[in-house]
Write a protein that binds this DNA or RNA. Structure first.
Lengths: 333, 333
DNA sequence: CTGAAAGCGCTTACAG
DNA sequence: CTGAAAGCGCTTACAG
């Protein structure tokens, strides 16, 4: 910047004014500055700029997800990025891999870069470590799951309601022995979906069989093994409710290798690509990740812009997508 | 930081030394500093730090992709992030949406944040605008496609070779009328894959029919329409080579709605999730996006660490994954 | 081992 | 409308 000022024959202040466009500058001088910028290939240093600005805004936000490689979070990310882009704000992302320490580490790293706000899908159960930062002006929005020990805006799917609807869908097809395969019980969404499953059974007056519930399942292979074990039991299920997309994939593969994909019903939580090309098509309870991202981003920028007011818990509805696997009736007998 | 120094009763220099761990500090003072940090909830400002450091390192790298939501780039991203993480480096990403202006805009934004390096899947044909920045010390690695008007490290798939192998696979099944559906000709990968297609036909002595080649196809719907139009023609193809994952998806849907998925062969470039659950399974020429990300990240950090030497063009091999659709023989006649 | 001072690249009152 | 000076939160020679 000093070089630019030298070449253009003006003061640093003037260069700054031309670049930020904050204050009118005589056209002739402005042109000289622009020529010098061009000539020298000068790039303004955004970090130095934010250091001195009165508002201390960095025009950067951070996203902490479970796994950027998961299609669900990817869709959330993309819609947040789209909103951020319209405001000239850059987005930093990271994957916590469901590890609370990693979540905190990433968050600190983002905070160290002085992000204006954070969108977090919490891995740990305690986010009180962010209290100080919020007081310092960092905006906070949680997605997919609520935070612990800190009150904040959160936008998530209707996990319990969606699972209840999905299980009710299987009950309507005549199933009474419906298995539930879910993620670790320490995960909020897994608990909620399990609650929805139980609610649906209770409403239908179907007794709850603990042998048909398996938690702590995560990767496709584990899910497949868990499903196979249940099917080999003495009172096997006639339908599966898989509470997470990776679990759904595992069970679909396994049913297929057992040749049972047309006789055992399956309903998954969260949608999958190509789910309608498989035979039978995979019926799911679909979430709205893009909607989640958009809502979260808008709320975040409202807070960054200084919106006060109580924190909201925004629940996004889910939607049943029947494609075949969830409409299979139980074998007679 | 000043507050920390005040509370701990030491100088700013000492606080800095404790935090960076650059120079030994008497344990007792160090402890006082750590207590003050804890008490005040102090977060070191990484941007201010990098501003003053001798090496001016920001511990941040930027990735410019076509679309973060594409499974291919997602895998590249994830493996770059994994490498960066081991070095305590943060990763910023953005989608160019195949728009050269957007590519440049994003790149400038990253450079303005003083990233240490950039991994770019170029959208435009001219990246010479980065020459100055590289001279200024920014490391540059291109992925998926080579840059234009600037020499740099690039890591990409063997596009031509992979397409040639894929088409040869269809030829081996007996096909002579093989259609090619590709992205805009302005895209490097599309041109290379087309060249591979032509090479395979030439090697087999099969005449090249321009009516069987359609470029500029991108989204699933367009791809489906293009395929349907060819099939309705006077001399329809007996097989399709789809040069991009979104195109493959579109053609699979269309063949299925036409009831032709078991009579028309299909081979796609780039793999798809659940491709083996569809019937018939979707045969593809698979790339290695994780490998691409790892290789690119390692090269980038080598350059950031000051590695000199000529720029490399690293070509990653592709691999044929037969799953059914590519092994369908042409109908007799 | 520790502190006082200078300065990284910028923005912002303050004068003019 | 423009320039000289101060200062954002840090690190780094320089003395001691």
């Amino acid at each position: 910047m000093r070089d630019v000022a030298g070449v253009a024959g003006v003061s640093l202040s003037t260069v700054s004014r031309v670049i930020t466009g904050s204050v009118p500058v005589k056209p002739e001088l402005a042109q000289r500055v622009r020529d010098a910028v061009e000539l020298l290939g000068y790039r303004p240093d955004a970090t130095a700029s934010s250091l001195r600005r009165a508002d201390r805004v960095s025009l950067t936000i951070g996203l902490v997800f479970e796994d950027v490689a998961n299609a669900f979070f990817q869709a959330v990310y993309r819609s947040v990025e789209d909103v951020a882009r319209t405001r000239g704000v850059l987005t930093i992302v990271g994957s916590s891999d469901e590890d609370p320490d990693r979540e905190r580490e990433l968050t600190q790293a983002f905070l160290g870069r002085r992000v204006d706000g954070l969108v977090i899908a919490p891995a740990g159960r305690d986010q009180s470590y962010l209290t100080r930062d919020r007081e310092a002006g960092v905006a906070l929005v949680f997605v997919d799951r609520p935070p612990g020990f800190i009150d904040a805006d959160v936008v998530m799917s209707d996990n319990a309601g969606g699972a209840r609807d999905g299980v009710a869908h299987l009950l309507a097809a005549g199933h009474r022995r419906i298995a539930f395969l879910g993620d670790a019980e320490s995960t909020f969404t897994a608990r909620e979906r399990l609650a929805g499953y139980r609610a649906a059974l209770a409403e239908a007056g179907v007794p709850h069989d603990p042998a048909l519930v398996r938690m702590g399942v995560r990767h496709p292979a584990e899910a497949g093994d868990a499903a196979a074990a249940m099917l080999a039991g003495t009172a096997p299920p006639t339908a599966f409710f898989t509470a997470r997309n990776t679990i759904t994939v595992g069970v679909v593969y396994r049913l297929r290798s057992l040749g049972l994909q047309r006789s055992i019903a399956l309903m998954g939580f969260d949608d999958l690509e190509l789910a309608d090309l498989v035979e039978p098509g995979i019926s799911v309870v679909a979430q709205d990740p893009s909607g989640m991202g958009t809502v979260a981003a808008n709320r975040l920028f409202d807070r960054i812009d200084g919106a006060a007011g109580a924190y909201d818990r925004i629940i996004l509805p889910t939607r049943i997508v029947p494609r075949g696997s969830g409409e299979i009736s139980p074998a007679p007998g």
